[in-house]
Design a protein around this nucleic acid. Structure first.
Lengths: 129, 129
DNA sequence: CTTGAGCTTCCAGCAACTGGAAGCCCTATA
DNA sequence: TATAGGGCTTCCAGTTGCTGGAAGCTCAAG
């Protein structure tokens, strides 16, 4: 199957698929004309990758997860460890954003937003600490 | 003042300060020996930038905010608009992360994390849609 | 036989830095 | 005065995960 169809089926841009090949996440065969020839297993992998990426896993995590997926002798603990670490990172990111959001919201709230130059937002940004 | 001291005072790595000069956010003078010579106003700007960055504003937003800060004829509405837009983006990001987090948490929860290969996380990643 | 879509490669660029190499400059000490 | 060190300079490359575009080959339809 050519890259165009694979792109549709896996829900990934062709560019991305080529990139994934570049970095060794998939290894499609080649037809005589030089076109990439994807097997069903490649499409499966690509869909897996696409889904893992929507969960926010890094490419390296995806590589690990894919390896585990293909490894019959894996232990689910290995998968869980990767996911748990990522979950922790996501939690931290959320906490960080929330705190940022609160400060920001207060400032926006305090700003009149009129034609005068006086602005608590700028005042805060300019303050010392 | 040399970059080392400025770095400490503004709380930004020297590398970052040089980068900010590169992209035109600050324009320190130069001493005869070629060293950057920062004025108080430069340090102020850098601190402003550092703080704006901790709020998650993009470099381009920072540039705008800095321009507004220096413009006596600004209207606070302009500042508020920038901040509000950013706040909306942050809110969206948080929502996105939260939804991701929930799915992820469910999967992690469902996974035994033992020595057996069976794993709902991988199962979910591999599923069709 | 030509047209157009689809495929190929390669190079560049995004954001916002960060690391490292090679080489001045300045001060202090032996 | 020589030298060792730390700080400063520039420039180039790498990070993450793609994305856009140019130049050129291939294939199917008309």
């Amino acid at each position: 199957m050519n890259i165009g169809e694979v792109s549709e089926r896996a829900g990934l841009p062709a560019k991305t698929i080529r990139y994934y090949e570049d970095i060794g996440l998939v290894r499609p065969l080649r037809s005589d004309n030089g076109y990439r020839a994807f097997r069903d297993s490649d499409i499966h992998k690509l869909a897996f990758l696409g889904r893992a990426r929507t969960f926010g896993f890094s490419i390296e995590d995806c590589r690990t997860l894919l390896d585990l997926y293909e490894d019959e002798t894996r232990e689910s603990a290995q998968v869980k460890a990767v996911a748990q670490e990522h979950l922790a990172a996501v939690d931290e990111k959320i906490a960080q954003l929330k705190s940022m959001r609160e400060t920001l919201a207060h400032l926006v709230d305090a700003c009149q937003g009129d034609h005068r130059p006086d602005c608590p937002i700028l005042k805060d940004l300019a303050k010392d600490p």
